[in-house]
């Protein structure tokens, strides 16, 4: 008996830190969030079960419009990031050799040595009314007065794509590295053109990398707070801002918790849908 329980006890002991982390930092807060979101404060310290907080979300247009807008812009950011990152990853994985390869990869990594806050302020220095780009355009004589390039959707998008780049490039490089060059040659040799090689061979081969990159970028973008707030200003209407407002400004934890739960459902739903559409399983994607 001792022999058979011995290793099992050891396994549990080894698993304890992991299980504790999962339970205390992820499972417990989310359950508590769900709990808070499902109650209504009647008077001081007295609560009852209610769905009012969720009802509020659907009846107040500002809330669900922000919600849909956030989801839509996150999807768009993911797609744009993919379109830019794919050629970059292809170049680093397949074209560049030796030292250049390492240098280029490092170049992708370097911006992430400073915090996201600092990077976003960097964008503000460039794009604000009295910023570098505005001054340069005036100096060239292309515009008459100062141009404000902050606080619009395009700028928010640029910021989000910039922030997400690395998280798309890394999984793509990893999968494309494994693609045997002769497979691309075979695609040509058997009568295909460049288009066939890309869509029949390269993209299907890179699919696990594409999907895992997209999931990470989408989640990060959806949950981003800094970039939309700083680059989009007051009108950026990002759903995380709504959550922040409910929790901090209005001190309405019940409403904020309901929004948090909704955001979790939304991201899970879209990721699930993306996996279904691309025909990938979550396990395969994550094991890459």
């Amino acid at each position: 008996m001792k022999i058979s329980t011995g290793p099992r006890l050891g396994l549990y002991l080894l698993l304890t830190p992991l299980l504790l982390t999962l339970a205390l930092l992820i499972l417990f807060p989310h359950l508590e969030m769900l709990n808070i979101s499902l109650r209504e404060r009647i008077s001081y310290g007295v609560y009852k079960f209610s769905l009012t907080n969720y009802g509020e979300f659907f009846t107040e247009p500002l809330y669900w419009i922000t919600f849909v807008r956030t989801a839509w812009m996150s999807i768009l950011t993911t797609v744009i990031t993919l379109l830019i990152a794919f050629p970059v990853a292809w170049y680093i994985a397949k074209v560049a050799r030796g030292k250049t390869k390492g240098m280029l990869f490092l170049a992708c990594l370097i911006p992430f040595w400073v915090s996201e806050l600092v990077r976003t302020y960097g964008w503000m220095i460039l794009l604000r009314e009295t910023g570098v780009v505005s001054n340069f355009l005036q100096w060239l004589g292309l515009v008459d007065g100062p141009v404000e390039m902050l606080y619009n959707d395009v700028t928010v998008m640029v910021g989000l794509v910039y922030t997400s780049m690395l998280f798309m490039v890394v999984p793509l490089i990893t999968t494309l590295d494994g693609l045997d060059d002769s497979m691309v040659e075979a695609a040509y040799d058997l009568g295909g053109n460049g288009w066939n090689a890309l869509w029949e061979v390269i993209v299907p081969y890179a699919m696990p990398g594409i999907v895992s990159g997209c999931i990470v970028v989408f989640m990060l973008t959806l949950g981003n707070y800094l970039t939309p707030t700083l680059l989009g200003g007051k009108d950026s209407l990002w759903f995380t801002e709504q959550i922040f407002t409910q929790f901090i400004t209005r001190f309405n934890w019940e409403q904020g918790a309901a929004f948090g739960v909704l955001l979790l459902i939304l991201s899970s739903l879209i990721v699930w849908l993306g996996l279904k559409l691309s025909g990938q399983s979550f396990r395969d994607t994550m094991s890459r």
Binding site: D180, S182, M183, E185, A186, A187, Y188, D189, L190, G191, G192, N193, E200, V201, P204, Y205
Partner: peptide, 16 residues
């Protein structure tokens, strides 16, 4: 190569 009447079996086969 995609227009030539020759095909190639690659060293590591390059099956998809």
């Amino acid at each position: 190569p995609n227009k030539r009447p020759v095909n190639m079996v690659f060293q590591h086969l390059a099956l998809f």
